[in-house]
């Protein structure tokens, strides 16, 4: 005698595991193909791949030095603009939830989360690039900061909100000022979540392409640290090189994709292990 309920349960488990595998399959495919096609050019170029300038069409592998440095500089400068603003607005909206400004900030940041990134590029083009009369790292980092702020704000808000109210009450009952309660208790308890949010924001902007298309220029001939000069990013280089007919540029793009993936994964793993978990 077959038990119908048991058969149903088995079938359900099989179907849901198959669907779960189907869902994560693309991730493995990405990692596999990036490794498969990215390792050969990097092996061919050696360490120079991280420091050299890109090759001319049809001639060798060279490197992605200027784009790699540009990516870091852009992520760093955009974090310098975006992180304090995100942190402050998250803190404000959590501490003063009924204030009309913080309600506005909250709604706006949720809406900005889904804004098409190309629009951010256009906005910064009109607001920064046109008045300055040129592309620049600064314009790129402003665009990336706008991408980052709603993202990090949401992360930090959630981290702060997950701190149980009873700890803040305990702080107030000890005669602490609001600032002391916020920084010594809320922020300190939520520091892992906050740091994760900041690092994820950093990781997110290292991969952005569209906001940079008409903001940073494409400085690939030398490594530049000038915030007012042209810059570049790995994602932009991949976007450009993969569209050309040159086989060696395709290889550079795959190598660059592997570097970008490694940066992203490193930051992701760092954010997991950097801070000790606070056990509530």
């Amino acid at each position: 005698m077959v038990d119908v309920r048991e058969v149903k349960e088995k079938a359900f488990i099989v179907i849901s595991s198959l669907l779960a595998i189907l869902a994560v399959l693309p991730i493995f495919h990405i990692i596999f193909s990036v490794l498969y096609r990215g390792i050969p050019p990097i092996l061919a170029a050696g360490m120079g791949f991280l420091t050299e300038v890109p090759p001319p069409p049809g001639g060798g592998i060279g490197g992605i030095g200027p784009s790699l440095v540009g990516t870091f500089m852009l992520a760093l400068t955009s974090s310098l603009i975006g992180a304090p603003l995100s942190f402050a607005s998250a803190l404000f909206s959590v501490e003063f939830p009924d204030n009309p400004i913080s309600k506005g900030v909250r709604t706006l940041s949720k809406a900005l989360l889904q804004i098409p990134s190309i629009l951010v590029g256009m906005l910064v083009y009109t607001l920064v690039v046109v008045p300055m009369g040129r592309f620049s790292m600064l314009a790129g980092s402003v665009a990336l900061a706008i991408m980052m702020i709603p993202y990090v704000t949401t992360y930090v808000e959630e981290a702060l909100e997950s701190v149980p109210k009873t700890y803040k009450e305990a702080g107030y009952s000890l005669g602490f000022s609001r600032t002391q309660v916020v920084f010594k208790i809320s922020v300190s308890i939520a520091k892992r979540g906050i740091l994760t949010g900041l690092l994820m924001g950093f990781a997110k902007v290292t991969g952005e392409t569209a906001p940079l298309l008409f903001t940073v220029g494409k400085q690939r001939q030398e490594i530049s640290l000038d915030p007012l000069g042209y810059s570049d990013s790995i994602s932009l280089l991949i976007f450009d090189f993969i569209q050309t007919p040159y086989a060696n540029w395709h290889e550079v793009a795959w190598g660059a994709a592997l570097v970008l993936t490694s940066i992203f994964l490193t930051i992701f793993l760092m954010s997991r292990s950097l801070t000790r978990r606070v056990v509530l």
Partner: peptide, 15 residues
Amino acid sequence: RLTGMVFQVPNPFPN
């Protein structure tokens, strides 16, 4: 500061 308080559920600062 003049008064001390202990709550219903133990809530030592976890950090």
